[in-house]
Design a protein around this nucleic acid. Structure first.
Lengths: 216, 216
DNA sequence: CGGTTTCTGTAACAGTGTTCAAGAGCAGTA
DNA sequence: TACTGCTCTTGAACACTGTTACAGAAACCG
């Protein structure tokens, strides 16, 4: 039987595919993408790194499988709201919330380009609401992509590890040194302070939704 | 003189800080962030990897310096438009265009969390237009962040290397397998085709700008 | 000339993903 | 029973990565 076998009735099986993927998922959820090392994962399983390659494949494939697994487990939260815009907004909020619940996996999924795989169930929920709101074809797709891209922009900010920037190059400290007579000083002062993301998310994504989804 | 010296009058200097940073920048612009290896950079300069550590520091510091250099060189394009919304939109377009002109450096700057450092001049231009449009303090900051985050969302999509996703997990092929009676079939079909990003950028960012910047 | 400060190169360490060749253990079969 | 064949595991290695310790040249300075 060639490698990467799915079912594995496990004749002598001391290790099977599911076990590998599950502990890999745990490893990532606990310590982030950098913690997912083939050797670490193998050690966690009490196995030589080779076995992982036999059962599921290289690191890239482990990540894909791991993301796929989490996507399956994603409980599809119920969309609320009494009109089209509200319900689409609710679906968008679910994407946002799900990503924040699993920040490390989401980041990893982005890095390997598997965000669609992770978010597909939630994207489907969004697509249903857009259909229900009366949009069709290209117009519906544009609304969909625009909303998801906007949410993605906020996720980039929200998921960034806070200590990534070494202090002297923080956006805040950078703006503190700006002295431009054409910029309102109160604005600069406001830029040096930390911003509250959720309200900004709410207002901005709502603006995008309202511009694509017809009113009630 | 301790390491990481800035000026370097170069007594015996066969190598100086500027040269290192410049070739590092070239290396990244040519082959992306993965091409920036300490050994490759050293070889390109005809030097041992050690010298780089002496002159500028580790990889992280090389990247910061490289981003800083490109930021200095960023020609500040002139903002056009006859009213506030148009001019803010123009400034936002400049951020978008600059990032697309230097995709690899932008991606690298994002990865080390130095986007603010790279975009600061263009962000200042945006801040000036927001001030000119009459916004002040927190309201101006919110507009600023919302617009930049929206642009960032589009950049995430635009800068992603196209072959990153291994085909069977492309958003397109994933949607092709979706069969949901609650989703308009024409929408699904549209989602399986490639989308034209620039028009979507224009329309979406304009919606955000219009919702934050008062009309003329 | 001797001493000190700069700078450079060699070699190594501790990691990373990945692959090769070899061997165990079980299944079915002659 | 003895055999072949398949499944699975493993130890060892390869080619990389960033980074550092150590030793030695080369220039400046007293």
């Amino acid at each position: 039987m060639p490698p990467h076998s799915e079912p594995n009735p496990s004749r002598r099986g001391e290790l099977d595919r599911n076990e590998v993927i599950d502990t890999a998922l745990q490893l990532v959820e606990a310590g982030g993408g950098e913690s997912l090392t083939m050797r670490k994962l193998a050690a966690e399983l009490g196995v030589a790194p080779n076995s992982i390659y036999w059962h599921v494949g290289g690191r890239h494939e482990v990540i894909i499988a791991l993301v796929e697994r989490l996507a399956e487990r994603q409980a599809e939260a119920t969309v609320t709201g009494t009109n089209g815009r509200e319900r689409v907004m609710s679906a968008a909020r679910h994407v946002w919330a799900a990503a924040l619940t699993h920040p490390h996996v989401t980041t990893l999924a982005y890095e390997v380009g598997a965000t669609s795989l992770l978010e597909l169930p939630l994207e489907r929920a969004l697509a249903r609401e857009i259909t229900a709101a009366g949009l069709k074809g290209d117009e519906a797709r544009d609304a969909m992509r625009a909303i998801l891209i906007s949410v993605g922009g906020f996720l980039v900010i929200a998921l960034r590890p806070p200590d990534l920037v070494p202090e002297p190059w923080t956006s805040a400290t950078l703006w503190a040194e700006v002295d431009d007579p054409l910029i309102d000083p109160a604005t600069i002062d406001s830029l040096t302070r930390q911003l509250d993301l959720p309200p900004l998310f709410e207002r901005t994504v709502r603006a995008v939704v309202d511009s694509y989804i017809p009113g009630p």
